[in-house]
Each structure stands twice: as structure tokens, then as C-alpha cells.
């Protein structure tokens, strides 16, 4: 799996947020995208997942030579793109088990694989739940409704474990988590690292990267990648803040 983003420009309601972004993510690599608030990190995550209202005006996004921009969100999910939301959405009245099974089967169907029946699904979900130490009763509740912040994030990582995506984009997964929850969630993500799975970590803080060690770190500012490096770049940012880089961007 190789994700290739070239000269990507995207706008929301006519306002340009991404201004010529380039990024390459190879098989099994973990890339951290860092940057100040408003730099376009979340926009990038949503553009990759295909959200309506995020309009790509120039550039290309390909996943193994498949053009993603043309695909609806469900089509991208079928190809193995997964977005873990910063604010997982509550779905009143939609049972969590039903949602997970329906999602998995929709993706399997898109790939031409047989759908799982209820028994096979329950067996699988129990196995995956152990990975994120999720309380079984959360399966019986409506999706994310009344879940604590930590439970919502666990539910996201549970989906990542269940769907086994080729490309997982984790949008501010550490936000709103206490240390214990952060550790559980990170352990879950680390267990899912594999040569067949690439991961993009979108995060404002270095903290998450203490638990999930990236192969590459990029700084996004003003809608472009302004600096790339290895994990030491994250430490440098922790010490110096973003000012020295965004200033550099303005000067350029």
C-alpha cells in the first residue's frame, strides 16, 4: 500500500485550507502529522476520508494508483481507508453491534468477500474487544451515545481492529484521554502495526508519540508540509513550539 498526495489544494465553503500539500506514505509506515491549530491537520484527515463539503480544487490523492478523489467515503472505506474521528459521532437509536457488523459486512461486500453471519461476527468482535479492553455492555448501547471520552476513542480503535484497514488515519486520538486510557488506546494501535498497514497520526501534541513511535514526522502549517523529519523532530517541536517553523513559512 502506498498513499501518494501531490500538490493537494482543498477548500471549505470557498476558503482554501490546504495549499499544495505533498505526502508519501509507504507500506507499514507510521507518519505523524503535527502542527498548530488551524493549520489544516483535521482538514487533511477529512479530505482523505472523502467528507462532503471539503472540496479538492487541485492535486491528486492515490492509493496504489487508485484515484481516491473520485470515490465516495464508502468507496474509500471499501478500499481500506479508515478514519478514527477526533469527535466520534453519537448515533441515537443505532445499536453499536449492529453498526459494527453492518460496517464490516459493507466493506467485505465491496471487496467481494462473503459477509459474516451473526455467530462469526460475535466471535470476531469479542476477540477484538480484548485488544482495547472495552466493556462488553457498550456493544449493546447505541453507537457512542452516553459513552465517556475514553470509551468513544476505544470504540474507534475497536473499529480499526475489526476493519483491518490498509490506511488508518487517527485524528487527534489522544485528545480528551487520561493517561490510562491513552496507554490502552496506544497499545491497541501498536498491536495493529503491521507491514500491510500504514498509519497517519494527526496530533497537536508530542504526548501521543511517546506511546506510538512514528517513522516520520511532518509539520503542517498554512496548508502545506513545512518540515519533515524523524521522531526527533517531534521532540524539537515540544521544546521550541511551532513558532520557529510557521515564522519560516511566512518568510518563505
Amino acid at each position: 500500500m502506498r498513499l501518494s498526495i501531490k500538490n493537494l489544494r482543498a477548500e471549505i465553503e470557498g476558503k482554501e485550507i490546504l495549499r499544495g500539500l505533498d505526502l508519501d506514505v509507504g507500506p507499514g509506515e507510521v507518519h505523524a502529522i503535527m502542527g498548530p491549530n488551524g493549520s489544516g491537520k483535521s482538514t487533511l484527515a477529512h479530505v482523505l476520508a472523502g467528507r462532503d463539503g471539503y472540496e479538492v480544487t487541485a492535486g491528486e490523492i492515490t492509493l496504489d494508483d487508485q484515484d481516491l478523489i473520485e470515490l465516495a467515503p464508502e468507496g474509500r472505506a471499501g478500499l481500506g481507508v479508515f478514519l478514527a474521528f477526533q469527535y466520534p459521532v453519537e448515533l441515537p437509536g443505532v445499536n453499536n453491534t449492529h453498526f459494527l457488523k453492518e460496517s464490516l459486512n459493507a466493506q467485505r461486500k465491496a471487496r467481494g468477500e462473503p459477509e459474516l453471519d451473526s455467530v462469526a461476527f460475535l466471535k470476531l468482535i469479542r476477540e477484538k474487544m480484548a485488544l482495547v479492553s472495552m466493556k462488553p455492555e457498550l456493544l449493546k448501547r447505541p453507537v457512542n451515545a452516553g459513552f465517556s471520552g475514553g470509551e468513544k476513542k476505544r470504540n474507534e480503535i475497536l473499529q480499526m481492529a475489526l476493519f483491518e484497514p490498509k490506511l488508518a488515519i487517527l485524528d487527534e486520538t489522544d485528545s480528551g484521554l487520561d493517561i490510562d486510557a491513552l496507554r490502552t488506546v496506544s497499545d491497541g494501535v501498536n498491536a495493529l502495526r503491521s507491514p500491510e498497514r500504514s498509519i497517519i497520526l494527526v496530533t497537536h501534541y508530542q504526548r501521543l508519540l511517546d506511546y506510538i513511535e512514528p517513522d516520520f514526522v511532518h509539520v503542517l502549517a498554512g496548508g502545506r508540509i513545512v518540515r519533515s523529519g524523524d521522531k526527533t523532530l517531534a521532540r524539537e517541536l515540544e521544546q521550541k513550539g511551532y513558532g520557529w517553523l510557521t515564522g519560516e513559512d511566512e518568510a518563505a
Binding site: 467528507r51 459521532v89 460496517s103 465491496a110
Partner: peptide, 8 residues
Amino acid sequence: FYLRSRGI
């Protein structure tokens, strides 16, 4: 969007 991003 949440549902569609899950393949539905």
C-alpha cells in the same frame, strides 16, 4: 459521514 466513512 460517520456511517459512510465506515463503508455503509
